[in-house]
């Protein structure tokens, strides 16, 4: 392959996927713009936004990678059924995703205390992260599995699907549920 061939094959393969991720990112950005109004009420909220978004990629990207390896190796079937491996992997992602959400609330609170900035109560930050974390887990895990299984049945390599699916779903639903969680905590507290 010449340099030119390598260049075009990577460019053509990656561009559609990155453009979809861009669409998701812009939508998430509009939601973030709406969240800015609540920042006065909960100082520290903006600190959690990039961490929350990045974690979605870390947790569910790993789940997607595991599922796609499992499909390639024939260890799990490409459909929703009581398969012990599938259930174990899904349960582990729930624990990781929800657990790390709580950790994000706590370390944000500690970090802002240490640098001496204004910060909301720790139970408010953790509450927002917990609600948003639980809701995104459910939607991302179900959505990711459904899309990987469907793609696999139609002959797409799941390895190429996982990254863009996770980024796009994570951005859109992560920010929507964050907005929802902020509203809910505002009402409850």
């Amino acid at each position: 392959m010449t340099t030119r061939d390598v260049f075009w094959s990577i460019y053509r393969e990656a561009l559609p996927i990155l453009l979809i991720a861009l669409g998701g990112g812009l939508f998430a950005g509009l939601v973030l713009e709406g969240i800015l109004e609540s920042v006065e009420r909960f100082p520290g909220l903006l600190v959690m936004v990039p961490v929350f978004l990045a974690t979605r990629g870390n947790v569910y990207g790993a789940l997607g990678g595991r599922i796609s390896s499992g499909l390639h190796q024939g260890l799990i079937p490409p459909r929703f059924e009581r398969n012990e491996r599938l259930i174990n992997a899904v349960v582990a992602s729930f624990i990781n995703g929800i657990g790390i959400s709580i950790v994000i609330g706590v370390i944000t609170w500690i970090a802002l205390l240490v640098i001496g900035w204004e910060v909301a109560a720790v139970y408010e930050l953790v509450g927002i992260m917990l609600i948003a974390g639980v809701l995104t887990s459910v939607v991302l895990i179900l959505g990711l599995l459904a899309l990987i299984f469907t793609g696999y049945k139609y002959g797409y390599d799941p390895d190429n699907l996982v990254g863009p699916i996770v980024t796009t779903l994570g951005d859109i639903f992560g920010m929507l549920f964050l907005l929802f969680a902020i509203g809910l905590v505002e009402v409850i507290v």
């Binding site: 990207g61 499992g70 174990n88 992997a89 582990a92 990254g163």
Partner: peptide, 14 residues
């Protein structure tokens, strides 16, 4: 961001 495969992928134990 996309983090492909964290942790050992061979494992299927929660």
């Amino acid at each position: 961001m996309v983090a492909p495969s964290g942790g050992s992928l061979g494992s299927w134990d929660t």
